[in-house]
Design a protein around this nucleic acid. Structure first.
Lengths: 149, 149
DNA sequence: TTAATACCGTTGCGTTTGCAACTACTGCAT
DNA sequence: ATGCAGTAGTTGCAAACGCAACGGTATTAA
């Protein structure tokens, strides 16, 4: 076990911690958002990303990136939300390959209704994770200024 | 925008950062492990968890926890690996509800072959993420002693 | 003993996912 | 202009997922 191996082990451990914390938070968000607003986490993420564009459009590819999804999954996700009337597809004038998406009024309403749930559950999940010995330090680091900079 | 709202916003931002980093790493690991060893990330995680038990058994439920999966997904995952001859199910004597799983020799071999790939790709992914402005600080924090404590 | 309760792992089912192949469009080079 | 490589988004398909319902086993109390 040299310094080299230690670095490998530290990375692996960090990755396991990251994955565990991610899974914990996502699971709790999933349950609550689904139950209270019939939204999955990715669906909420899309609404959130669009809302943060402040009335501006967003292309499919940007959306895929924001939601960390493949382009095919993004297509279907947008279709789903469009069918529910939460957003609309808008053909792009300057680049006819591109498609913009925009929140509808109903989309805004649902997002603003879901946001408190999201924020509350996120806080609870982080608090819960903070109690777990392996996760606590990462939770703390997440709050720190450095990560937010 | 009071202090209260700032805290909410900091948590949200932290969560998005965490999710983005998680997705980046998982995607790269998935591609490499799949291509070079026909293993998904969760499958590797299971082999890793079992190997770290150092020859000792592990129950389905523990495995589900380690892999951050539902129990049903764990059942099928173990079945898949069992069909490939990488691990075996062992009935538990003292608690006949329980089922232990153990790596086979083939399982050990495959895991040890896949580990270098895993470690290398993880290092690359972290290095790549370190270059991204939003992710860099979290990557750094992940290396720190505090998180590893 | 027997009943009530809780737990463990499995299965049916519907949903979501990524990959690969495809169409449509852009931009560059000839 | 014309061809060609690269990009944007969609679709077929098979794989993997979570939830809910189930059977089998342990634990506790009457």
């Amino acid at each position: 076990m040299g310094i080299r191996d230690d670095a490998v082990e530290i990375r692996s451990r960090g990755w396991r911690t990251l994955a565990a914390l991610h899974a914990l938070i996502e699971t709790e968000l999933e349950r609550s958002l689904q139950r209270e607003h019939q939204l999955s986490v990715v669906e909420y993420t899309v609404l959130d990303a669009l809302s943060r564009q402040d009335g501006w459009h967003m292309r499919m590819r940007q959306l895929a990136r924001a939601a960390a999804l493949s382009s095919s999954a993004t297509t279907r996700l947008v279709t789903r939300l469009e069918d529910r009337g939460l957003l609309t597809r808008i053909l792009c004038d300057d680049d006819r390959r591109g498609i913009y998406t925009e929140l509808t009024d109903a989309g805004w309403k649902l997002f603003e209704a879901a946001r408190p749930t999201h924020d509350r559950v996120l806080e609870e999940a982080l608090a819960e994770a903070g109690e777990v010995p392996e996760l606590g330090p990462l939770v703390t680091a997440l709050h720190s200024e450095v990560v937010q900079a």
